[in-house]
Design a binder for these strands. Structure first.
Length: 257
DNA sequence: ATGGCCTGCAACGCAGGA
């Protein structure tokens, strides 16, 4: 089973890239973030023609998440239960016996902003919910744009980013707390090139100069981590014309039994 | 030099992203 996550930065603009990438990679499950599209105009038909079902939770202009899958998606939940939020950032579904949780964690803007406080409150709510989800689903994967670079090696210039949003200690502690709940960072299960990133600023030739951050992640429960055979960041779509600023992250899980 | 770029919405600039 091939799982993927990709912040597409507007599904409308990126649909051609998404379709090309699905054809090339043939993932079984894809979590999308920043679809920036309302549910009434979600491109259901184009994705169905490509062989994918879709569940989605979107809004106008901002945010928006979706789960694409070859197999049926059931037990769909939008949002963090008990945490009212106008912003469409969470979608969960069960696909082929695996619980899939798609996240678009708030950016936070800057550590002295109200948006940062919202991010921390959001992360606290996430911790409580995931604890229950992990207890209920031994085979669980959390995929998405976490907007957290977990360690200095996930940052092109750790000194410049020290203490800044995406790298601050409270955010990194939340990431470690997710690991402490029994989740594994699939990317770090394997040998990886130095300076591996999943996002690069559009400005200043960020991608060409590899001035990036690793903020898109796939976390696996014990039941899936033990069967994970590969995890990589696919930089290919970032080289295409008019790309998303994020690259997809892909994990391969061996079939159970 | 605290902006550079991209998207959506709407309107000819703004918010938001990271």
């Amino acid at each position: 089973m091939k799982l993927a996550t990709w912040n597409v930065n507007s599904l409308k603009v990126r649909l051609p890239h998404l379709l090309d990438w699905l054809a090339a990679e043939a993932p079984d499950v894809v979590c999308l973030q920043e679809t920036k599209t309302t549910d009434d105009v979600f491109p259901v038909e184009a994705l169905a023609a490509a062989g994918y079902r879709a569940v989605f939770s979107g809004q106008k202009t901002y945010n928006g998440v979706a789960i694409l899958s070859r197999a049926d998606a059931v037990d769909v939940v939008a949002g963090i239960p008990g945490f009212p939020d106008e912003q469409k950032r969470v979608l969960a579904a069960t696909v082929a016996g695996a619980r899939i949780i798609c996240l678009y964690i708030p950016n936070g803007q800057s550590v002295d902003s109200d948006k940062y406080q919202y991010k921390l409150a959001w992360l606290s709510a996430l911790q409580g919910w995931l604890k229950a989800e992990l207890a209920a689903h031994p085979r669980l994967a959390v995929l998405g744009d976490f907007n957290i670079a977990p360690e200095d090696r996930d940052v092109h210039d750790p000194a410049a980013w020290a203490g800044q949003v995406l790298c601050s200690e409270p955010e990194r502690q939340h990431f470690r707390d997710l690991i402490g709940q029994g989740l594994t960072d699939a990317f770090r299960l394997f040998e990886q090139a130095d300076k591996s990133f999943s996002w690069w600023d559009y400005r200043q030739g960020g991608f060409r100069r590899n001035l990036g951050l690793r903020i898109d992640h796939i976390l696996l429960s014990g039941g899936l981590a033990g069967a994970c055979t590969a995890c990589r960041i696919d930089k290919t779509p970032r080289t295409w014309e008019r790309p998303s600023d994020h690259a997809p992250v892909v994990a391969e899980i061996a079939a159970p039994g």
